[in-house]
Design a protein around this nucleic acid. Sequence first.
DNA 1: CGTCGATGTGTCACGGTGTGCCACTTCGGC
DNA 2: GCCGAAGTGGCACACCGTGACACATCGACG
Lengths: 204, 204
Amino acid sequence: MERPTPRQRRQAATRRALAEHALRLFAERGYEATTVADIADAADVSTRTFFRHVPDKDEAMFAADEDVFALVVEAAAAAPPGTAPLARLLHGVRALAGSAEQDGEVKCARERVLEENPVLRARDLAQQLRWQQQAEAFLRRQGVAADEASLAAGLLLTVWRESYRRWIAASAAPGALGELLDAVVAELPGHLPAPARRARAVGR
Amino acid sequence: MERPTPRQRRQAATRRALAEHALRLFAERGYEATTVADIADAADVSTRTFFRHVPDKDEAMFAADEDVFALVVEAAAAAPPGTAPLARLLHGVRALAGSAEQDGEVKCARERVLEENPVLRARDLAQQLRWQQQAEAFLRRQGVAADEASLAAGLLLTVWRESYRRWIAASAAPGALGELLDAVVAELPGHLPAPARRARAVGR
DNA sequence: CGTCGATGTGTCACGGTGTGCCACTTCGGC
DNA sequence: GCCGAAGTGGCACACCGTGACACATCGACG
């Protein structure tokens, strides 16, 4: 793979600095009360340069964790063949859980900022939708039918969001996300409306 | 219930007019290329008045369907007692389906605009999240445990989104949304990872 | 070492978004 | 018909985001 040019290193450093200062200022004085000029000043660049590294003021916070979902697809592809769609995705998402558990502190702070800023929350949701679409596309590549893949990807996201929510609520204890994931999956059957009805044998 | 004052009627009419012209202009010339002044001019008000009725430019499109979800809660409350949480919500969401099926044309246009405007899509997702939270709160009021209510609300949203997606893909045929809702629910058991495993008998 | 070209940065100007303030009109109640 | 309340428009203003131009920095090459 290509080694990073000194230029690229400088560029990445600037972007990371902007992202850090953005999250810090948003947490300190709120999203609305923080201007782009504030973030740029904190990172010691002009506002014009800010927009050369970050597309929007919103995106400043998310500039770091862009393509984390590649992990999921990679791990999901390693699942044994013949696994049902949702189970395959779950196999992949465990890798994401392991990655997220590394820094529960930051995730909690992030969640606190998202909670009281509808704009940033919307941005977060949009990224989750992109994840769902990537999961669906992955299943399609594996030969799963369109409707089935879409529903499975939707279910995955629901399971993930519920597990993540409980994890944050439990102060992001290290190592607990994986267990919560299993717990939520175990609860799914209890939510089915008509368990006695014909199961329509979709699973292969 | 309180009868609408003439003033409130005027106000609602203005807001509806703004929403209609916003959707039309967004569809015609795109979101970016449409200014607030354009929408305001089309509705024959000043830009200042625009912002008195609509909080953001983004919100213009959604100004109309704000408290549609009240329908869902109302219908869900009418479900027979003893119904499982998700089934109760589904009972309510059928009312929403009936309402949406009235104007499939508009829903299709709306979806087309959302598809190519990340900002508006994010706004749409944020509103869906509010719906989920309202559904959860409703279940809590009915005495459902916190975690169970949250998961059930999440599942409801997934089922709704998947059904709605298929409905739009099928050109929003009138009357088909309800059937698709049932079809998606019927597919759920097939997505469960371990159907033979102990079902943990949560449903009462 | 000096020059050239590429890239990053700053400054300026501009259109669009969203809000506070004040004056004006309009509408409902007396 | 009068008066208070609410909606409306116009103005000024801060912030967001972009295009254009000039300058600084750094690597390549003779």
